[in-house]
Design a protein around this nucleic acid. Structure first.
Lengths: 208, 208
DNA sequence: CGTTATTTTAAACGCTTGTTTAAACTGCTT
DNA sequence: AAGCAGTTTAAACAAGCGTTTAAAATAACG
């Protein structure tokens, strides 16, 4: 395994666990068992390393997401449940790409949104606009009455729900385990959240 | 104005803006125009300062919240919209307590949830259990068919939606302003999010 | 007024952070 | 074998962090 990949793997796990600000390069390089200076040699800076970690996942998942959402758009009268269910397989496929892939990726999304103000929003909208565009199209087809402004807010609410839940999913799964004596996985959480966000986005338009 | 309060005010604004980890004591004391050592003299440590900032708001808002939720429980057949609407007045009343109070408090909630893993959950559940208990009771009265496990998840999804939205509400309001040419306030965002979370919590139970 | 308490202050502490440097080492090509 | 690009290494850098210290300034009280 190359030094570059050792760094990426270690950084990914630590970033997901303790956030970008909360993880030092020394933690990363010692867990990766490489020299401290290797990060700056191979990636230039910590910020570029963060981008590299995110890009590795986005490049893997974004084509699958775009395709799944396009397929939903092509069905006759898709429901919002259909739209959100389109996320399941692409996200779970990250577990084959890498151990803990799904969970790590979703936690990283959460970190990126809250850690460094607005960085992830910029990253997603400029680097991967296709996913968002297809997603908006699918929601519009499932719920044409939704105004652009309501759509904007509800998509951000949804982003918040998902990203926040996933960034603390480990803790939530632990609590659920001890409170309800049930063995849960990240896939269970995904399936749990879909009815919630579908109902939220599908809420009736408030009388203006 | 006392040194203690100058520190609390400066810390509150900076914490809301840049998070707990992202704000240094030197930024706080220089904005408060007090000596650096004053924080450790008056509060003991940075961690205690964070608690003090949170407590100041919680002590102000939690009695109002408990009362409003109790009132909802006493009505005949409350809807989930009623339950969540009970939050509006207590939250908005924080604007009379302090400039930007509502917005700051909600952003602080978001920071506390994501910055230091699990700290806020511990803080709320141990220091202010009354609010959560009354909230759960109100939701149970409005939607008795909801199982305890579904309730657990959906309340956390809701917490995520609200906390995440509010922690980035300034940016969202800016975007909405430029995209839709509408002047928005934090109160508009609160009113916008209620139909969403009410519908999410009220989503039909999935066939188990 | 004089004497305690309380508060403020400047300076330093020890530690961690991201980044840079220059030398050492590696594997490959001519 | 010599040279060279690519990589790794130990060491140091400057800057920032939370916290502590001891002296100076202020307030409170008999």
């Amino acid at each position: 395994m190359s030094t570059k990949n050792k760094i990426l793997d270690a950084a990914e796990n630590l970033f997901a666990d303790k956030g970008f600000n909360g993880t030092s390069l020394r933690e990363i390089t010692s867990q990766a068992e490489v020299n401290l200076a290797a990060v700056n040699y191979h990636f230039g800076s910590k910020k570029e390393l963060i981008k590299a970690v995110m890009s590795r996942y986005m490049n893997e998942v974004s084509p699958r997401l775009e395709m799944a959402l396009t397929q939903v758009c092509e069905t006759d009268s898709p429901s919002l449940i259909d739209v959100f269910s389109a996320f399941i397989d692409p996200l779970l496929s990250l577990n084959e790409f890498k151990d803990n892939g799904t969970s790590n990726f979703l936690q990283l999304l959460g970190r990126g949104y809250t850690d460094s103000q607005g960085f992830l929003r910029w990253f997603l909208t400029t680097q991967y606009p296709g996913v968002i565009d297809n997603f908006v199209l699918a929601v519009q087809k499932a719920y044409p009455e939704l105004s652009a402004e309501e759509m904007f807010w509800r998509l951000h609410f949804t982003m918040g729900t998902v990203v926040f839940t996933m960034s603390s999913s480990d803790a939530l799964i632990d609590i659920a385990k001890s409170d309800f004596e049930r063995e849960l996985q990240i896939s269970d959480v995904i399936r749990q959240v879909i009815p919630y966000v579908a109902a939220g986005v599908g809420a009736p338009m408030p009388k203006s």
